[in-house]
Design a protein around this nucleic acid. Structure first.
Lengths: 286, 286
DNA sequence: GTTCCGCATGAATCGATAG
DNA sequence: ACTATCGATTCATGCGGAA
């Protein structure tokens, strides 16, 4: 079972299928960006078959191997994941996964941090609420496409506070006293209204009243799609869930491919993409 | 060469010595909190003998072994560390270190994230400014001392509006026993003004004039000393640097022990601790 | 149209109890 | 001893309907 949605200048193909089965049918070196949030170990057992932490790596590696094949040499793979606590400790399957993926040829280029402003509540005697997740960036080659200007942000509190009262030493070049090599000529930033972001994303999870809770908020795939693709490129999400990735990609005129095993979630994807098709003109203003 | 500083109700001992040599002289099970920021691989090569990333783990493991011995069973080890980017990739020595430390008997209890709020908005062709660091928590036993009430934070602004007018359902509602199990009993929140923090620390890096490059801001050891120790406990920093840990510990009436190999930095430690001794009364109001 | 305000929801974890 | 299930605990946000 699969569905094809044609929009003004892009298409979205979604498959109600195990992603491993579906991936083998994809052409090699055809994807510009893979972004996904796979089922975490032992989570979502109500809807998906729970994967035991001790078997997580061996379950996931065949999939990353196929993802490596289908990704373009200039493409990027963003993996949203966080290890669970087991027996009072953080489990090590994510660390092991990174080490094993490197053996497959992946470069572990970067680790972005997603700070979840509205994290899960709760209180325990030995730990606080977990308020961040990893966004691991992998690449096939050292040179990859990255459109940094597309995600510049308004200069925020940092600049406002820092630039308000410039000391005399700030206005002239200040050879870094700590020898970091990062020469800071603060006055260069006066008058600018845009700055490059950092590798920390501050986003809240969306808690809608609908039947499915999205793994990540729309702004998360949106940010990475802006950063790593151009219009007309192709985005892949092997664990589509409620379909956020394909929905956002279509809104941004990127082609997209998605796999979702559970029929219930697949149907939600179909609905939201169909709705986007209807209201194409409005949403493409995105 | 070593120095002993006696304060009103605590002492600080610092040694101008390789920490491995010094640690063997310490008593087993005598330390309540170890907090340190070791020399990063290949970093600070101007000041420390550079440790090559590929040899980082084998260099550090003998030290963590001694740290395991000297830590009390109820104690905690906080390790501030971040992997270096080498050849366009994040190096894996931190991941490997965690796995090897577990073999020594350490429990990897938690990974706090330090978000460095004021890092400069720079960039490289293929990455953004790195604005976070790992704060790895290790323990010897599943039960350890943790004084969570000491680090509570003000409740967010939402509470003022939310709790202003409680509806009847807010007061009466039974915690739901279905689904996630999270019943909300909003009336529990009336009158509360403090909440427990999360595992993300938003701290600015200190722009001090110190000539040492890897010093963390005072608020960082301060937070962990509050969280994991009581007055009269003993804090250890095997890589003292400019001495922040001992300085803060002394201000907070905790005993402290520190090692610093470089004479230049050791002298800075001596100076700042001597100054604290002079101005003891003011600073102990901390 | 906008703003305001009520409300459901969330990739959770621990400890005790039962099988 | 080892595993499975269950109750208790908790905070900040987006959404949607009302004003």
């Amino acid at each position: 079972m699969s569905r094809l949605f044609e929009f003004d200048s892009c298409v979205s193909k979604i498959f109600n299928q195990n992603c491993l089965d579906g991936l083998v049918a994809l052409e090699s070196n055809s994807i510009d960006l893979i972004i996904t949030s796979p089922p975490y170990a032992d989570q979502r057992s109500a809807t998906y078959t729970a994967i035991k932490p001790d078997h997580y790596v061996e379950w996931f590696l065949p999939i990353t191997s196929e993802l490596f094949r289908v990704l373009k040499p200039t493409g990027t793979f963003i993996l949203n994941i966080k290890e669970k606590v087991a027996n009072g400790e953080r489990h090590t399957y994510v660390l092991e996964l990174i080490l094993e993926m490197k053996k497959q040829g992946w470069l572990w280029t970067e680790e972005f941090m997603w700070h979840k402003k509205n994290c899960y509540p709760g209180k325990w005697p030995n730990r606080f609420r977990d308020s961040w997740e990893r966004l691991l960036q992998f690449n096939k080659e050292r040179k990859f496409n990255m459109y940094q200007e597309e995600v510049m942000v308004p200069v925020g509190d940092w600049a406002q506070n820092r630039l308000k009262n410039l000391s005399e030493t700030d206005k002239i070049r200040d050879p870094s006293k700590v020898g970091s090599g990062f020469g800071k000529n603060i006055s260069n930033w006066v008058g600018r209204d845009k700055a490059y972001p950092t590798n920390v994303l501050h986003l809240a999870t969306e808690c809608s009243n609908k039947s499915h809770s999205a793994a990540f908020p729309k702004s998360l795939p949106e940010w990475f799609i802006k950063l790593f693709t151009e219009k007309g490129d192709t985005v892949l999400d092997p664990f589509l869930g409620s379909g956020t990735t394909c929905l956002v990609a279509s809104s941004m005129k990127r082609n997209s491919i998605g796999f979702e095993l559970e029929e219930k979630y697949f149907n939600i994807c179909v609905e939201s993409l169909a709705q986007l098709n209807d209201s194409n003109k409005q949403l493409c203003l995105f």
